[in-house]
Simulated assay, not measured.
Amino acid sequence: MMTHILLVEDEVKLAQFIELELSGEGYQVKVVHDGLGGLQAAREQSPDLLIVDWMLPGISGLEVCRRLRTTGDAVPIILLTATDEISDRVAGLDAGADDYVVKPFRIEDLLARIKAHLPTNPQQDPNILQFEDLKLNRYSREVSRGDRKIELTATEFDLLEYFLLHPRQVLTRDRILEAVWGYDFMGDSNIIEVYIRYLRIKLEAHNHKRLLHTVRGAGYVLRA
Score class of each variant (00 low, 15 high):
109 D>T: 09
71 T>L: 14
85 E>I: 11
63 E>D: 12
103 K>V: 08
89 R>K: 15
124 Q>G: 04
177 L>P: 08
4 H>R: 09
197 R>K: 13
4 H>A: 08
197 R>V: 04
4 H>S: 08
137 N>F: 07
188 D>W: 02
63 E>L: 11
69 R>H: 09
104 P>G: 04
1 M>K: 08
40 Q>R: 06
49 L>K: 14
162 Y>M: 07
170 V>S: 01
63 E>A: 10
220 Y>H: 08
175 R>A: 10
224 A>G: 15
217 G>H: 06
176 I>Y: 00
158 D>G: 02
102 V>K: 02
209 K>A: 15
9 E>V: 12
181 W>C: 01
130 Q>N: 07
19 E>H: 15
52 V>Y: 10
222 L>Q: 06
130 Q>T: 06
39 L>C: 04
95 A>Y: 08
90 V>Y: 11
137 N>M: 05
23 S>C: 13
22 L>H: 07
160 L>Y: 06
36 L>N: 11
27 Y>L: 12
185 F>I: 03
47 P>H: 10
220 Y>K: 03
174 D>L: 01
79 L>A: 15
81 T>M: 14
156 E>P: 04
181 W>H: 01
128 I>Y: 06
100 Y>T: 13
58 G>W: 05
155 T>K: 00
207 N>T: 12
36 L>M: 12
195 Y>H: 10
77 I>S: 05
85 E>H: 15
155 T>V: 09
55 M>E: 12
58 G>R: 01
85 E>Q: 15
127 N>I: 06
146 G>W: 00
37 G>K: 03
48 D>K: 00
71 T>S: 07
86 I>E: 05
198 Y>D: 11
142 E>R: 00
163 F>C: 00
136 L>G: 05
169 Q>P: 00
205 A>P: 03
61 G>I: 01
205 A>F: 07
46 S>Q: 12
97 A>F: 12
120 T>Q: 13
161 E>M: 03
192 I>K: 03
36 L>Y: 12
129 L>V: 09
15 A>F: 05
223 R>M: 10
197 R>P: 10
86 I>M: 11
200 R>K: 07
129 L>Q: 09
165 L>A: 14
216 R>E: 08
93 L>C: 04
17 F>T: 13
140 S>L: 06
18 I>Q: 05
220 Y>N: 08
93 L>F: 14
149 K>M: 08
116 A>P: 08
189 S>P: 10
124 Q>C: 06
71 T>N: 10
174 D>P: 14
223 R>F: 07
83 T>F: 13
105 F>N: 05
147 D>P: 05
80 L>M: 14
58 G>Y: 02
18 I>S: 05
190 N>P: 06
95 A>K: 08
119 P>M: 06
75 V>E: 03
22 L>I: 11
172 T>F: 05
134 L>W: 02
23 S>D: 15
169 Q>Y: 07
